[in-house]
Amino acid sequence: MSTTERTRALRRHMIVEARRATVEHGLHGFTIEQLCETVGVSRRTFFNHFASKDDAVLGIEINADVEVIDEYAAGGVVPGELDPLDSVVALAIDQFHRIGIARSDEVLIRQVFEREPALVARFLSATDVQLARITESVRRRFAWDDPTDRRARLVTEAAAALLKVTAETYFDDAFDEATGPAFEALLTENLRLLRAVTTTERESTT
């Protein structure tokens, strides 16, 4: 296992244990020191990865994807011939490969929000910040330098909508993981459906 993989596994371990502790005891029912003891890391190590206990519970890691987003903005990470929407979806798939995704994660975070509803607003705020970062990276990648150009925002919001619909399907209790498509395949299919319906609508009006 590489250093990057070990770091990723450690971060994931801290996130899962923080969420489990929150579900069991509430956000204020355990300390960072207790979490560190459970995971087997020092307080200093914890703060190398997370700015606060809340961030650990929500999985908001310090500078976790800055390098990847910067590389994407510079034309890397995903194939350069992809159009803007395809490239953002490919970036999302790349991130899922890097961090992994499991339906059990969604169940746990749902339980966290049920126990601590106030964290929902914090999560939504963090999501808005991330969307803004992705929007700026799209702007840089495709050299849309005019600050009034709305294309980067439209592309990012469209990709976010695709991810939302895909996640709602994949994490639904009725979804059969054994027979259903993988998250990546489902996201790719939803992108195909979106393009098909928009193309059909365009052709029908010409």
Rank of each mutant, 00 (worst) to 15 (best):
L194K: 10
Q130T: 14
R103N: 13
Q34V: 02
D55K: 07
E17G: 05
R151C: 06
G29N: 06
N48R: 13
D70R: 13
T38V: 13
R141C: 01
N48L: 10
L35C: 05
L162Y: 01
G40L: 04
L10E: 06
L124Q: 12
G59M: 02
L85M: 02
S104Q: 14
I32Y: 01
S125E: 13
D146Y: 00
T206D: 12
I134T: 13
Y72P: 01
T200V: 13
L163F: 07
D145P: 03
Q34A: 12
L85A: 05
A132Y: 03
V57K: 00
R11Q: 12
A182W: 02
V39R: 03
M14L: 13
D83N: 09
G26E: 02
V120L: 10
T148K: 14
Q34I: 02
E17C: 09
P117M: 02
F47K: 00
E24N: 11
A118L: 11
Q130W: 13
A161F: 03
S52Y: 03
F113L: 09
F113C: 02
F47D: 07
L187S: 00
I69H: 03
I60S: 08
E33Y: 12
T199F: 07
S204L: 14
P181A: 09
D94H: 14
S104M: 05
A174T: 12
E116T: 06
H28P: 05
I93W: 03
A174Q: 14
L58N: 06
F123A: 15
D145Q: 06
E189L: 15
R103V: 15
H49Y: 08
A167D: 05
D70M: 05
L186S: 02
A182S: 15
L10A: 08
T31Q: 02
Q130H: 12
F142N: 04
T45G: 07
R133D: 08
R133V: 08
F171Q: 04
I15L: 10
V57M: 02
R98Q: 12
D173Q: 05
D54T: 15
T200K: 11
A118Y: 11
S2M: 05
R150E: 14
R195P: 00
S125F: 08
L35I: 00
R19Q: 07
T22Y: 00
R141D: 02
I15D: 09
R115P: 05
V23H: 01
Y72F: 14
V107M: 14
T205C: 06
G80W: 09
E24T: 10
N63H: 13
T3P: 10
E136R: 10
I62S: 05
R110D: 13
T148L: 14
T188S: 14
R151G: 03
A160Q: 06
S125W: 15
